[in-house]
Design a protein around this nucleic acid. Structure first.
Lengths: 276, 276
DNA sequence: CCACAAATGGAATAAACATTCTATCTTGAG
DNA sequence: CTCAAGATAGAATGTTTATTCCATTTGTGG
């Protein structure tokens, strides 16, 4: 593409990038990904700062720009700056978006908006109701555990699935208890007092999760609980527990707040461990 | 005013300028006028270009900045840049603002607030950017499928985990492809043109997910994709695909928007089926 | 497996930059 | 009118920045 006319605006650049997706070399692809994902940073950064953030050399940025017909990086950056100016100045885009949504709102969009609203509400509720002292205690408990056992079923299962992924990335030993093999109890039998558990259970409470939390607790293993009511069976057996009510749409509960909480707990524990 | 603490944000600077309106020397007044009148240009220009536009010397810009307590022009310019970024009303930025306000919060709470803010931001972005027509098409495709195959790894896995749970409740036949048994390909081999798939893949893209989506697509099985970039390998093989950028905190991406989208898609498909 | 072309990393470089310095000008009190 | 204090213009300076260049590495067609 070098030598041709460079894209005139951000959208053209975006289109050009997508079009060349297949033939773009690895590093240039890396830049393309960063540019589309964090256009704001592209507008403000210097070659050095952007290169570091995108994990490439400054020269790669220049080559990327030249690949799309610009003289150098500066010409490319101009597109990102103009985009930022225009987006702020004109409410047109947003209005157009709102109008098209408001007048002819299809059922699918209505459902999506419902879940978005439920997510916002849940997150607000989370921020306002969480017991901050309890959060610190929970982090302390889990950070000191040798292995963290993660207990959850059904609707709560995705939460611990994500935690297991994140803990893995963060090199924190953990085990998801409800496996497909069905050897939950064998797994739990290996837990010692040096370990700890995190159990999630929302109404209607899965009997197994409650029972497993109870059993661990009786064996002197600290359990951190996440549930939606003080009446939850988890509240009885957990050393620290959190009450978290998710808003719902069409009878389906949001998971936004639970996920945010789980991520905070995960990162908090990893951070605490790192410091120790 | 030199020597005092510089304004922390654009509004403070604006207030400071108005307050000193009477005592500001002529050339500094000239700069002040330009700064308030064309803040966008202040954000991107260099000392040379701004000085020329405001009809002053570059050194006057530096003196102006120092007059308000900044080290030099660069510190002042930062305010104008942040203003441009924040025009989009990011929760993350507002949060940073609150934190600098003073209340001493523990690390765990700070992390939680970060993820809550990231969740809000992601949900906003979802509501503003989703292609509503594409959503309807996606619902149509999946609603007509005999069986819906769910493809996702790693960070995206919790999403399809939840969808599988919800589809089960809603009596919509579906199968999660990446099982612990590792018979993914055997499962996929059973898929026919009457079926459809939903694949989720965020950067860094899992090669298997992309390959499986590609393979299904080539066999005439419609694939609905959810990804975070137009450069995703999913974009190539999917009949309909959605781009969804999650905000992140401390390097960990939120899942709030993806979850909300997945729930909307799930309920939308079930609803469409019920009507048929 | 080789050889050639493309791509890449990193040092070298020249331009652009913010900032400082100093001579000159402006202002206002006595 | 005089003089001192402050403000200003413009050149000088040292730093940062984008860009170029070249030695390796990587990928590929014969």
């Amino acid at each position: 593409m070098t030598g041709q006319l460079p894209p005139r605006d951000f959208e053209s650049l975006r289109a050009a990038i997508v079009e060349m997706r297949a033939t773009l070399p690895k590093r240039l692809m890396q830049v393309a990904g960063y540019a589309l994902e964090r256009p704001d940073d592209m507008a403000f950064g210097t070659t050095a700062s952007i290169a570091q953030a995108a994990q490439v050399q400054p020269s790669t940025l220049v080559r990327f720009a030249q690949h799309f017909g610009f003289d150098g990086f500066s010409g490319l950056q101009q597109l990102f700056r103009e985009r930022l100016r225009e987006r702020n100045g004109s409410y047109e885009d947003r209005l157009r978006h709102l109008e098209s949504g408001g007048t002819t709102e299809t059922e699918g969009v209505a459902i999506l908006n419902g879940f978005v609203a439920a997510g916002h509400d849940s997150l607000d509720a989370l921020a306002n109701t969480i017991d901050t002292a309890a959060l610190e205690r929970a982090i302390t408990i889990l950070a000191h555990a040798e292995t963290i056992y993660l207990i959850a079923r059904r609707r709560s299962f995705p939460i611990v699935t994500y935690m297991a992924y994140a803990f893995g990335k963060l090199k924190v030993p953990c085990r998801v208890v409800s496996t497909a093999i069905g050897n939950d109890d064998d797994l739990l039998a290996q837990a010692s007092a040096a370990d700890a558990a995190f159990a999630v259970s929302f109404s209607p409470y899965a009997a197994e999760s409650a029972a497993q939390a109870q059993a661990l607790s009786e064996r002197g293993i600290a359990v951190v609980g996440l549930t939606d009511s003080a009446l939850s069976p988890l509240a009885g057996s957990a050393a620290v527990w959190f009450e978290l009510v998710e808003a719902d749409h069409a009878g389906f509960r949001s998971l936004s707040a639970s996920m945010a909480f789980a991520m905070a707990l995960t990162v908090g524990v990893a951070e605490r461990r790192r410091q120790a």
